[in-house]
C-alpha cells in the first residue's frame, strides 16, 4: 500500500512537472510552430539540415517524418534528437508512402498534439534556406495568410536556383494554369517550402494529394477562398540524394497534375469560417 502511494505521488509530481510548461504556454499564448521535414533516404543530408534549423528562435519544434527509408534516416534522426536545441520529434512510416502522405503525417501529428499554430514544410535535403523560415511565418501572421509559399521565382533575393529547362517550363505552366483558373497570382506552385495556417493544415489532415502534392494543394486552397501568398526565397541545389521528380518523369508529372487540377474544379467548394 505504502509503495503504491509513493508511486502515485511520483507519478503526480512528474505529471505536474510536465504540465507546467504547457500551462504556461497557454497562459501567455506563446505560439508554437511545427516544422515538418519529410525524409526519404536523407541520412546523409539530414544532420546539416537540422543543424541549420538550430538558429531559429524558441517556439519552433521539428518533426522528421521518415517515409520508409531504405537507409539509416530514422536512426540518424533519433540520434539528432539528443543534439537538437529545439524539440525534435521523429515519426517513422512503416513503408514508403510518398511525399504527400509523409507531409500529411506531419499535419496529422500537429492535429493530434493540438497546440501548434503554423505548420511549415521544409525539405530534409538542405535545399531550403532556414533564414527565410521566420519570414515565411511572419508574412503569414502579418497578412493573415492560410498558405504562404517560398518562391524561387519572385524577384528580391537575387535567386540563383537552377533547374532543367523542362522543369522550368513545367513550373511556369502550372503557375499560369493556377493563376488563370483562380485569378490569384502564383509564381512557384511546385515549391515544397511552405507555411500553412490552422485553417489550411487542418483541412490537409482530411485531404492531401498523394504524389506531387504541391500545385494541387495550392490550387485547392486558392479555389476554396483560403488566403494564399508568396515571399521570395533563395534555394540551393540539393546537397545529396535524388529529387523525387526526375527529368524523365516530368512529362507524366505535368499530365497527372494538370488532370488533377482540372478535375478539382468540378468538386464541391468547401466553406471556411473567416
Amino acid at each position: 500500500m505504502r509503495r503504491q502511494g509513493r508511486i502515485q505521488l511520483i507519478a503526480r509530481k512528474a505529471t505536474q512537472q510536465r504540465a507546467t510548461p504547457l500551462a504556461l504556454r497557454w497562459k501567455f499564448s506563446v505560439a508554437t510552430h511545427l516544422i515538418v521535414l519529410p525524409a526519404y533516404n536523407e541520412a546523409e543530408a539530414l544532420p546539416s539540415t537540422v543543424r541549420t534549423l538550430q538558429q531559429l528562435p524558441d517556439g519552433y519544434e521539428l518533426l522528421v517524418v521518415d517515409d520508409g527509408s531504405q537507409d539509416h534516416t530514422a536512426l540518424v534522426a533519433r540520434e539528432l534528437r539528443t543534439q537538437s536545441r529545439l524539440p525534435l520529434h521523429v515519426v517513422s512510416l512503416p513503408a514508403n508512402c510518398g511525399i504527400g502522405a509523409a507531409v500529411q503525417t506531419g499535419y496529422l501529428f500537429a492535429a493530434r498534439k493540438n497546440g501548434y499554430q503554423y505548420v511549415i514544410q521544409f525539405d530534409a535535403d538542405g535545399q531550403h534556406g532556414a533564414d527565410y523560415l521566420t519570414r515565411l511565418v511572419q508574412t503569414c501572421e502579418d497578412q493573415q495568410l492560410d498558405l504562404c509559399i517560398g518562391s524561387r521565382f519572385l524577384s528580391g533575393v537575387g535567386n540563383e536556383f537552377r533547374s532543367t529547362f523542362l522543369r522550368r517550363i513545367g513550373i511556369r505552366f502550372f503557375a499560369g494554369l493556377i493563376s488563370l483558373l483562380t485569378g490569384q497570382r502564383v509564381t512557384d506552385p511546385t515549391s515544397g517550402f511552405r507555411c500553412a495556417g490552422p485553417r489550411a493544415w487542418r483541412a490537409f489532415v482530411e485531404r492531401y494529394p498523394d504524389d506531387y502534392p504541391e500545385p494541387e494543394s495550392l490550387f485547392w486552397c486558392a479555389r476554396n477562398d483560403l488566403r494564399i501568398g508568396e515571399i521570395p526565397v533563395r534555394m540551393q541545389e540539393r546537397s545529396t540524394g535524388v529529387s523525387s521528380i526526375r527529368s524523365l518523369r516530368t512529362a507524366y508529372y505535368m499530365i497527372k497534375v494538370t488532370l488533377a487540377i482540372l478535375i478539382d474544379r468540378f468538386r464541391p467548394l468547401e466553406r471556411f469560417e473567416t
Binding site: 512528474a14 517524418v65 515519426v91 512510416l93 513503408a95 502522405a101 503525417t105 501529428f109 493530434r112
Partner: peptide
C-alpha cells in the same frame, strides 16, 4: 500506416516516461 507511425511515436514517449518514473 500514418496512424501506426503516430501511435508508435506516442508509445515510445510513454515508455520513456515510464522508465523515468
Amino acid at each position: 500506416m500514418q496512424d501506426l507511425a503516430l501511435t508508435r511515436y506516442e508509445v515510445e514517449g510513454l515508455q520513456q516516461r515510464l522508465s523515468r518514473l
